[in-house]
Simulated scan of single mutants.
Amino acid sequence: MKQFFKNLFGGETAVLESLAAIGVDMHSHILPGLDDGSDTLERSLELVQAMQQLGYRKLIMTPHIMSDFYRNTPEGIREKLELLRNAIAEAGIEMELGCAAEYYLDEMFLDKLDNNEELLTFGDKYLLFETSFLNEPLNLREAIFKMRSKGYKPVMAHPERYSYFYGKFDDLVALRAQGVLLQPNLNSLTGYYSPAAKNVAEKLIDNGLVDLVGSDVHSLKHVGSLQRVLSTKYVSKLLNLPLLNPQL
């Protein structure tokens, strides 16, 4: 459903009532006590309820895994998933919950690939990864090759936020041509992170290069910004793309 309001130039701008058309969020930090996201079970419950109010029916939560800060394991992540599932059932909150992980592209990640360790994926072996925001990893192409050779489908988290791509949009186009799925954050459409990130996110949408979208919710502040996404002109353009989210 869309509502309309008069904009400053006399025309009408569509305002979505919810994000129900996306339905499934595949990138968040809602599981309690694992990373820089939710720190308590109570806060996780608040976040799940807030995401439900935005129209989501399923949350695939993706704690950070990185060698320097968050050495999470599949077992530990699943344990927190069950804890949260039990808590929302007791609270009467209807939401399907799943988990994967957001892997930082470092040597530990490459070792896990080389050693065939279990990696948490979602959907059709989609593997979410991130890199440094400032510097392109020297082993980026090597890591992508290894992920694909192991049967994973690499998903680059928030590509619009990596400053090393600024002014190099063709590099993102080339990565996608090499089989990397691109997942911008919804909040980039409001300029939440930076004007540059907003510009790249819009350009990805304009060129039909978005495969998945994520909330990247860490806190209620992020949820508040998601509400502002509903009134951006690019959210309607985004929803006209063949996003994978509803199929997850």
Rank of each mutant, 00 (worst) to 15 (best):
V173I: 10
T62W: 05
E90V: 12
S231C: 13
T121H: 05
D114L: 12
S225C: 14
F165R: 09
P154F: 05
N86Q: 11
E82A: 14
N185T: 05
L54Y: 12
L186R: 09
T131C: 13
A91F: 00
D68C: 08
M95T: 10
N115I: 09
D124W: 09
L83V: 06
N199E: 15
G11T: 02
L119Q: 01
L181E: 14
L226D: 03
P137M: 00
S132K: 00
P195A: 08
V235I: 15
H222V: 03
H218N: 15
L105F: 06
L134W: 09
M108W: 13
G55P: 06
V15E: 08
V155W: 05
Y56N: 01
P242W: 01
S236R: 04
Y234C: 00
V200C: 02
D206R: 01
P242T: 01
H29L: 06
A101P: 11
V210D: 01
E17T: 15
K237A: 00
L175N: 03
K221M: 09
R148F: 13
N72S: 09
G33A: 11
L31W: 01
L244F: 07
D211Q: 06
K237C: 00
K233R: 07
A177Q: 14
L134H: 08
V180C: 01
A101N: 10
V213E: 12
F169M: 02
F5H: 08
P242Q: 07
Q247Y: 07
S38H: 05
Q178N: 09
N245F: 09
